[in-house]
Simulated assay, not measured.
Amino acid sequence: MNNIGIYVHIPFCASKCKYCDFFSKSGNDDEINRYVSAVNERLAKYGKELNRTADTLYIGGGTPGIIGADRLSSIAKTAKFAFMIDDNAEITAELNPASADESFDFSKLRQAGFNRLSIGMQSANNNELKRLGRLHTAEDVKTTVLSARKAGFKNISLDLMLCIPEQTKESLAHSIEYCAELGVEHISAYILKIEEGTPFYKEKDALTLDEDTQAELYLFACEKLEQLGYHQYEISNFSKNGMESKHNLKYWDCDEYLGVGCAAHSFINGKRFYTERSFDEFYKGITYQDGEGGSIEEYIMLRLRLAKGLTQKDFKRRFGIEIPENYIKNAKKFAKTNLLIYDDNGIKFTRDGFLISNTLILEILSGIG
């Protein structure tokens, strides 16, 4: 059987950003210790039950860095033993510059097997960071990256947010150039979504950039990143050659993964299941079934997020048949537009297509329009 990916959710943050709707809270040492112990127990339990090997481990949040290098290392050690994760695996920790200051022990992470960091920069403009409710500055990002490099990290990703209120092409260009000057290997560039229940939602009408401006900033970012040596391999992800996120590619390739922690989702042995946004339910081991996974429709939906798109070769390898003709027929309707490319290799979206990918995917799968 194929290797799975492991995702661990750390739901602790120093404060809530104005746009964030992820499950997170502040926590004291006792709460954090209890949670980490429960994560390690669950990893060990799943390791015995599933008897599977893994080749990626991703610890996300929340702010994983806030629990410290020792606790992160203990989780990595447990996961490596439980799922026979070897030294060639991709092992990632998410960090925020505010929680990974000069006192953070990056060397301890390297010793524990971590070889990739995903750092929540969002912007290199301090006024934009303040607007988002971030606790760090652009200089803090630089300090974090340099400290990680000194400890031996050779694979670093920075998060970049697009369409921040009052963001301009000039300010966005500065953020992108800042990433490139730091020499990071990977950049995730997400369009800001204002979610219900967040502080931003209360003022959403005044904050939301119009669709034309959003499209303009997205396309500008894609072009600028490419000019600086970061190729686009997914709607929101860019990397130097060979430095794509192996863990995230599992999601888009519809491969299997195990999620551990509050609000974590899993796809194992063809079944999807998840843990609620509840500490009590996580500690009790309560999970909920979320139906079958890995269908043809789901695979198509996920693969069309990738720049290489849905290929006949990969589809036939997985399902033993060619892409069904009704989906090809629906895609061909858009072949004369600048939204997607259809040829003998398969179907892939252009950057303009990525901007309305949800609509296009719906029309390809259902034939609307």
Rank of each mutant, 00 (worst) to 15 (best):
N2W: 03
N2T: 12
N2Q: 13
N3V: 06
Y7N: 08
K16F: 04
D21E: 15
F22M: 00
F23T: 13
F23A: 13
K25L: 09
E31H: 05
I32T: 07
R34Y: 00
Y35G: 09
Y35Q: 11
K48N: 13
E49D: 14
A54H: 07
I66H: 06
K80R: 10
I85G: 12
T92K: 06
E94C: 04
E94K: 07
L95V: 12
P97E: 01
A100M: 05
D101P: 12
F104Y: 15
F104P: 12
D105M: 08
L109D: 06
A112R: 07
R116N: 05
Q122R: 04
A124G: 13
R134W: 07
T137I: 03
A138D: 04
E139D: 12
K142Q: 03
T144F: 08
S147F: 12
G152A: 06
I156G: 01
L162Y: 01
C163G: 02
C163H: 04
I164F: 07
E166F: 09
Y178I: 02
I187F: 02
E195G: 10
K202V: 00
Q214M: 07
E223P: 09
E234D: 10
S239L: 08
S239M: 09
K240G: 00
W252Y: 12
C254F: 05
E256K: 14
E256C: 15
L258V: 00
V260K: 15
S266I: 15
F267Y: 08
N269L: 00
K271R: 14
T275H: 14
E276N: 15
F279N: 10
F279L: 14
Y288A: 10
Q289A: 00
I296K: 08
I296R: 06
M301A: 15
M301G: 13
L304Y: 03
L306D: 07
A307L: 01
Q312D: 05
I321L: 12
I323K: 02
E325S: 14
Y327N: 10
K333W: 03
A335V: 00
K336G: 07
N338V: 07
L339D: 07
L340I: 06
G346T: 03
F349R: 11
D352E: 15
L355V: 05
I356K: 02
S357W: 01
N358Q: 11
L360R: 04
G369P: 00
